[in-house]
Amino acid sequence: MEATRRFTADAGHELRTPLTSLGMTIETLQRNPTLPAPQRTRALEAMGAEHHRITALLTGLQTLARGDAHALPDRVPVDLGALLHEAVSHAARRHPTTYRLNGSTPATLTGWPVGLRLAVDNLLDNAALHGRPDGTVDIQLTHEAGTVRITVSDDGPGIPPDQRHAMKERFTRGPRTRAPGSGLGLALVEQQAHLHHGTLHLGQSPAGGLQATLSLPAADEPGPPGEPMADASS
């Protein structure tokens, strides 16, 4: 029963993002029946991509539910820079937030693309929902000493230090938040960090908001199974 409950909650949370994007694209096509062919083609391609993403998410969530997140599907090389650029582009269409991708270095790791995208999407959505209205979210990708780090910083009220660890647990919401949500976002990021032998560190951003750092072993230095790497960002 617990696995079923978790799957239902996770599925509802994760499907909201691609379904919202899909709905916006459909609405655009409905409002613009004379849309030029090139734009219509791009819109249809975007719809196809979101459909594929929904299917992949369902498959992935079912896989995680069956094993209670103790095993990943087959790992493949993942270009984290390309994944991050695509995720930021989609997030900018979902939120009235300014996303700034502040330079990134080439970074490849061996992992599960669906799970990594799930983690990045949740970091970007969390920053937009809990930052200032119409605020700014800064994103940075770095690769140093065998570790790849994605850092997402918002300009919201932040989370008190003594409550940050609890925010990684399912169904936990910050005491200062008024944004809608189920309290699953950071828990899913934490889950994916662990499955990829990495860590999620929550701290304070330069603007006083939340800074989330996802640290993962690069492709040439995979972590040992079941032993998350040390969090050098803390």
Rank of each mutant, 00 (worst) to 15 (best):
G198W: 04
R176A: 15
D138E: 10
A193Y: 00
Q192Y: 13
V148Q: 05
G185M: 09
L184N: 14
G181S: 13
S182M: 14
E169W: 05
L195R: 06
V137E: 01
L141G: 11
E169T: 08
Q192M: 15
T199S: 10
T151S: 11
V148P: 07
P157V: 05
T151N: 02
R173G: 03
D125Q: 15
G181P: 12
H130V: 05
D134L: 11
I139F: 00
A193M: 01
H165R: 09
G185I: 06
D138S: 01
A128S: 10
T177C: 15
R176N: 15
L186H: 10
Q140W: 02
T136W: 03
G156C: 06
G158C: 04
H143A: 15
S153F: 02
R132M: 09
T147Q: 06
A127V: 00
L202Q: 03
L141R: 10
S153N: 08
G156E: 06
A166Q: 13
L141S: 08
Q192N: 06
E144H: 15
R149C: 12
H196C: 12
L202G: 02
F171N: 05
P157C: 07
A127W: 00
P157E: 10
R178W: 10
I150E: 03
D155K: 00
L184R: 14
D134F: 07
T151C: 03
T142D: 15
H201P: 01
H165S: 11
A145C: 02
D162W: 03
A166L: 10
G156I: 02
H130G: 10
T147F: 02
V189L: 07
D162F: 00
N126H: 14
T142W: 10
G181R: 05
A145P: 02
H165I: 03
I159T: 09
R164Y: 06
A179P: 13
P157N: 03
P175K: 14
R170F: 03
G135K: 01
N126I: 01
L200K: 02
T172Q: 12
A166C: 07
L186T: 09
R132H: 12
G185W: 09
P180Y: 09
P175R: 15
R170K: 10
D162M: 00
R178D: 14
T142H: 11
P157H: 06
T136S: 08
R132V: 02
A187R: 02
P161L: 14
H201F: 03
H143E: 13
L200D: 07
Q163F: 08
I159E: 08
T199P: 00
H194S: 08
L184F: 14
Q192F: 13
H197T: 12
H194C: 00
D134P: 01
V148F: 06
R149L: 06
E144V: 11
T177N: 15
V137K: 01
Q191C: 14
R149V: 08
V189Y: 09
L202Y: 02
V152S: 08
P175L: 14
D155S: 04
I150S: 06
G146P: 04
M167C: 04
D162K: 00
G183S: 13
L202R: 01
T136K: 05
N126S: 14
Q192V: 15
T147I: 14
Q191G: 07
V148A: 08
T172M: 06
P133K: 05
P175F: 13
E169K: 09
Q140K: 12
H196I: 11
L200G: 04
